[in-house]
Amino acid sequence: MDYFAQQLINGLVLGSIYGLIAIGYTMVYGIVGMINFAHGDIFMIGGFIALITFLILISFGLTAIPLILLVMLLVSMAITALYGWTVERIAYRPLRHSFRLAPMLSAIGMSFVLTNYSQVAQGARVKPVPPIITGGHTLHEGADGFVVQLSNIQIIVVVTTVVLLAIFTWLVSSTRLGRDMRACEQDQTMASLLGVDVDRTISMTFVIGAALAAVAGMMYLLYYGLVDFFMGFVAGIKAFTAAVLGGIGSLPGAMLGGLLIGLIETLWSAYFSVEYKDVAAFSILIVVLIFLPTGLLGRPEVEKV
């Protein structure tokens, strides 16, 4: 039971990271109807920028951890958001009203570009960082000596996710930008006729999605203590899986899907085999889609005849 509780905590933390990335997928899909294949790499870039910022701050002799974290977060979000904006501007906007497969391939191409750009710019080797946040709390100590731990970093990941989710929900439900986004999601032509700047709204969607991915990248760095140029691919696929699982286009769905994928992966690794954890996540995706073709919280699609 203690072991299970510990895995539950680990799974929820991992799931929070997936959920943050998944939101970016689901937002872009909702508004422009395309799978932004480069989003996983945006997450990776976010991790790298957080890492570089951290190194620079340390070398300047800064020691106040909260301040370091704050600066890392802001720099990483800002620069990564600009990456999101640039990717949309270069690779997707020219193909906005084109053939459906063209933006998808353009996105796959962009994903290759970002992966290899990081490899060229920062080298192929894994970049480890010493633990930045240490310590934790013992929740329960079992009779057999097994200790259920909740580390500080886990608390930070979950709290950051919850806070961002709250800000984000407010943004979509109560601001002008959020309203424009929902309008574009429904009908871009009509939205533009009613004075919504569609290009700007779509750009902002990418910017917000990238900023959230940057947060996820930084959390990943803090939690696992490493980044590498290839981490975007697998994390990206899993986060997209999470978005589809939750019902693509649905924000709570993305978060729910992320948590589920995180839990499945962690529990599978804990109880069955680490090697097949990804197989388990993907298999569950396939099974869910067969029985719930629009995901857990997705709107059912009524076929128009």
Binding site: I90, A91, P94, L95, S98, F99, A102, P103, L105, S106, I108, G109, M110, S111, F112, V113, L114, T115, N116, Y117, Q119, V120, A124
Partner: peptide, 21 residues
């Protein structure tokens, strides 16, 4: 060598923009 995939990705993007169909 290591720039190969970078160029390949860029080519994919440019080709799609040039001839989406």
């Amino acid at each position: 060598d290591q720039y190969r995939m970078l160029v390949f990705g860029m080519a994919m993007v440019l080709l799609m923009i040039w001839r989406p169909r």
